[in-house]
Design a protein around this nucleic acid. Structure first.
Lengths: 134, 134
DNA sequence: CAGTTTATTTAGAATAATTCTTGATAAGCT
DNA sequence: AGCTTATCAAGAATTATTCTAAATAAACTG
């Protein structure tokens, strides 16, 4: 664990909002002005490689990074652009809803929802009310 | 629906193996040698826009395209590199296993598994047997 | 501790998938 | 036929990411 890796990890833990590599770079740069973007990519790669951080992808947008190691899905909000963790319910497994063949071997699964987060969904309901008087 | 769009759509329906844009391009080119890659991208975009085709992304690999309109997940096989459709079980919904807040608005969800497809998983079990005599 | 190997960092070049631009072509209307 | 609009083709441009090479730092070895 080098200084740079620690700084990148701390940036992720300090503000757990699923930043992109460039956002991590900008945050780390305030503490360690000499760090390069390539190093941030290297560190993120190393950290994901040893399982401390997860890379989160949605469509072909830039990868985002997440230090939440529990099993969870992500909600990508069309309103605010934010990403929200969605926990797995207790004692539930993906195969409860997905018809996986018996003899497959699952090493990883990634789930993303797109829509509106609670905040944006309620704000949106205000703007376009359906059954409500002023 | 232009000739090009039809040709791209036919290429997807003819061999439903989740090809990339370049693979679609190569297939269509045999029937319509003048088509350009940009047009394939345009057509795929148009077809996904009107809901006839789904774009499938996994990590930051090139997008793949899928004409299966039923709700399903994808298994990306580390062994053969193939992609397999995994159907949703009857009367099951993502919120059965994911703890979604009440007031979110879900517009789309994408699920991908990574691992070994049945064929590769059994082949792999042969090569590295655990409890089996020769 | 000097010398040597090994890993890491940096800056910038290279890559690759996708998108954009521009001019050409075709299709639909009047 | 003439005008408008959408689509296509070719290649340039964009962008996130990876690679390269040189510099630096860390870790051993004697």
């Amino acid at each position: 664990m080098t200084d740079q890796r620690r700084a990148v990890y701390d940036a992720l833990m300090g503000q757990r909002d699923h930043p992109t590599a460039v956002e991590v770079f900008m945050r780390v740069k305030t503490k360690m002005p000499t760090i390069s973007l390539a190093t941030v990519y290297n560190c993120l790669e190393t950290l994901t490689g040893c399982g401390l951080v997860k890379a989160v992808n949605h469509d072909r947008e830039p990868s985002r990074y997440c230090p939440n190691l529990t099993e969870h899905a992500h909600l990508f909000c069309d309103g605010c652009g934010g990403v929200m963790d969605i926990p797995l319910r207790a004692r539930r497994r993906p195969q409860d809803i997905w018809e996986l063949p018996d003899d497959v071997c699952i090493l990883q699964h990634e789930v993303s929802f797109r829509g509106l987060c609670p905040k944006c969904a309620t704000a949106d309901a205000q703007k376009a009310p359906r059954s409500r008087s002023k």
